[in-house]
Design a binder for these strands. Structure first.
Lengths: 220, 220
DNA sequence: CTTGACATTGACCGGTGGGTCAATGATGTT
DNA sequence: AACATCATTGACCCACCGGTCAATGTCAAG
């Protein structure tokens, strides 16, 4: 029964949400206008009316997704940490630990990543999002290098931020591929041990890996 | 004109090679039996005769690909390096620097990675390959931790190998996504600076990032 | 009440892709 | 020479997908 119902962007939003649900189930490859329409309880034609094409829908979904995917922000607990190095590590730790809970989104994100290899618009969106992420890490990295220039001789804040972002992305990859076996704690501990001066920076040898000696904000 | 021609696995091999060429052009999504057949100069039916289904073809292609994708092996030049730390770094460096040249394969690999998220067989193959890779890194990691236990207190060889592999995979991701802007040198320099003791281990401040102070085997 | 804008539908189309299959002919065997 | 084998073909089927479009019902404005 044709006719006005949700004239504004409600429909767009509803369709996008439906598209997300479908994509989470079927991946981007399996995302068809048909399925989305069915999931949203509307007709196939309406999807094309609102998004023009399947491609338009995909791009819109990506932007919709990126808008509401959290960016690395240090919270108060982290800002209270004594050393800038530990502050950076704490942010990394929190984001990496959050990955398993966001698995659906992360998977989808990689779908888009692959798609971006051939799709300029998608690629641009993803790059922008990653740049934002890396930029959010940058001030933390800056503090690290300025706090102890001798230790990080020749290391730039940009480089450090990039590597930190890369580390997190690498972990994301592992989480998607092998969630059971990927040991978040082990990776983080290793990173910590790598970055920390041996012996110096009064850290007690806190025993078993898996429990870190520095406090980390829980994510409720 | 039907009839025997290359009765053995020649045809399989030929079709797989064709499939690889098509996949390199069109990605996994665009890989159709039609295209592969055309590329191989055979009929579509033959593809199904040899591989049963598109899925069978994809799995066969993945295995074919993984078989002939090189695994991190340290060569003589690297084994000659004085410290185990530098040996590990040299291997990482060589593999990361090789990534841009292998871009096609890397892209394809990520296609399979994404596919593996939903495809148990593919997932198993990829996991196995990654395990092999990580295991190849492990002895190097072992040397590192045993050589300087104080510095890497609480750090396990497994963890180090995993993180090293993760770092390389993260770089691969960047290479695929943003080959122009991803600065291989910067990432490697940063990693080096992170891992190296500040001030100690007599490294001259070698000036501009991009030129590393330690020797690296070229890849001819 | 009429009118016009417009979201919405459902039927429809052309293309394509995975998959099947009977027919065919080259090859090795008896 | 006759036969069995089997790789190989090409036509064919069906499902589905992206996309179009005229028709229609609804709403707000005049």
């Amino acid at each position: 029964m044709p006719g006005h119902k949700a004239p504004e962007d409600e429909r767009r939003e509803a369709i996008l949400k439906a598209a997300f649900r479908v994509a989470a189930r079927e991946r981007l490859t399996g995302l068809t206008a048909q399925q989305v329409a069915a999931e949203a309880g509307v007709s196939k034609g309406l999807v094309f009316f609102h998004f023009g094409s399947r491609d338009g829908l995909l791009v819109a979904l990506l932007d919709w997704l990126l808008e509401r995917t959290l960016v690395a922000q240090s919270d108060e607990a982290m800002r209270a940490l004594p050393s800038p190095q530990e502050r950076l590590l704490a942010v990394i730790r929190r984001d990496v630990e959050a990955l398993p809970r966001q698995r659906e989104r992360v998977e989808l994100f990689f779908d888009y990543w692959v798609m971006g290899t051939r799709h300029p618009t998608v690629r641009a969106s993803i790059r922008a999002a990653l740049d934002r992420y890396r930029d959010a890490l940058r001030p933390l990295a800056e503090d690290v290098v300025t706090a102890d220039p001798a230790r990080y001789e020749g290391l730039s804040a940009d480089g450090l931020a990039a590597v930190a972002a890369g580390f997190i992305e690498g972990c994301a990859l592992q989480v998607v591929m092998d969630p059971e076996r990927f040991d978040v704690g082990q990776s983080l501990d290793t990173l910590h041990a790598l970055v920390t001066h041996g012996g110096r920076a009064g850290m007690a040898s806190a025993g078993a890996s898996g429990s870190l000696p520095f406090p980390v904000a829980g994510t409720p």
